[in-house]
């Protein structure tokens, strides 16, 4: 007679998985302290990168307002006359990529400069106004990224009336660079702590395998397949990971809630309406799915290494 897997009906198969999943959950529930401690270690390990990610997202959101402030200053040539200036202003006003064009008259600018700089006497000695006409241009939101703004700058530099264009993007770039480094840092910490979660789950499952050695032996004696024996341990790992993920979510949410009051007060001092945003749905899904998978994978490693060592004697 041929040996091999007997074909189970799909509903029987689903029912068996459901049974194992629930009995594994029940087993964890019966040892609440041990389960909670393992889940807490996983939760804390995952809360750190999650919290940093949320903080970083908040900072980027806060900086999102500044990105829009990327403005171009068009310094016009001295010989350009008033008619040409009006023509250029109208032309740029109709430009599809621009939100606003503001004309700064050199006479007004000089007046302001005299008033604010304290060089009143020295400036009066000049026989003519040395200041050029300046057009302050604000691109539309979607053209405010450093790359798009730079493209606009080269476009305007080619205009005959324009002497040179100045784009003050340095600080935007620096800020982007800093947040990019921070993002990478969070990623590295996330990977390291993810590995730690794998080890924690792996070690916990290893101990469980040792505790249930006689059960495994007997199951092998009566014809339990490796898959059958492996299954409850894999579900255990999955539950550990998932409960750790839920705990991490709670920890981060509580921390945000505790920080929210002081941050609102600080924002109020800056007359900002910045509001600390909680974990969004996408991040939460990634956190829970990731933690469950880490638990499953950690237990898979432990089971693969230690289950074959146990053979009935």
């Amino acid at each position: 007679m041929k040996l091999g897997r007997s074909h189970l009906r799909i509903d029987t198969w689903v029912l068996r998985h459901l049974q194992v999943a629930l009995s594994s959950l029940g087993r964890l529930y019966r040892t609440p302290l041990a389960t909670l401690m393992t889940a807490a270690v996983i939760g804390i390990a995952l809360a750190l990168p999650t919290g940093m990610h949320v903080a970083l997202s908040n900072i980027q959101q806060l900086a999102g307002g500044w990105d829009g402030a990327a403005t171009l200053s068009l310094f016009l040539k001295q010989e350009v006359d008033e008619k040409q200036i009006i023509k250029l202003t109208n032309k740029l006003g109709a430009h599809p990529k621009l939100a606003e064009v503001q004309l700064i008259n050199p006479d007004i600018a000089l007046e302001e400069f005299q008033r604010l700089s304290g060089f009143k006497g020295a400036l009066k000695a000049l026989d003519r106004n040395p200041l050029p006409t300046v057009l302050i241009i604000e691109p539309l939101q979607q053209y405010s990224t450093p790359e798009a703004a730079e493209e606009l700058m080269t476009e305007f530099n080619r205009l005959a009336e324009v002497d040179f264009t100045q784009l003050d993007l340095q600080w935007v770039r620096r800020f982007h660079a800093i947040t990019e480094i921070a993002r990478r840092g969070v990623m590295v910490i996330g990977i390291l702590l993810g590995l730690a979660v794998l080890l924690i789950v792996g070690n916990t499952i290893r101990l469980e395998i040792q505790n249930r050695k006689s059960e495994i032996e007997i199951t092998k004696l009566i014809g339990g397949t490796d898959a059958f024996i492996r299954r409850p341990f894999l579900y255990n790992g999955l539950w550990y990971g998932l409960s750790g993920g839920i705990l991490a979510w709670l920890l981060v949410s509580i921390s945000l809630w505790m920080l929210n009051g002081p941050i609102e007060r600080l924002a109020g001092l800056y007359r900002s309406e910045f509001d600390l945003s909680a974990i969004d749905f996408y991040t939460l899904s990634i956190l829970l799915l990731g933690s469950a998978l880490l638990g499953l994978f950690g237990s898979w490693i432990a089971v693969g290494r230690h289950l074959s060592d146990i053979e009935p004697s």
């Binding site: 040996l3 006689s214 032996e217 092998k220 004696l221 009566i222 014809g223 059958f228």
Partner: peptide
């Protein structure tokens, strides 16, 4: 395939091997 073979061989032990 060993598990499938063992399903066709019932085994009884001196120490019962019960859970």
């Amino acid at each position: 395939h060993i598990p499938y073979h063992r399903r066709e061989v019932g085994m009884i032990f001196q120490d019962h091997r019960l859970l």
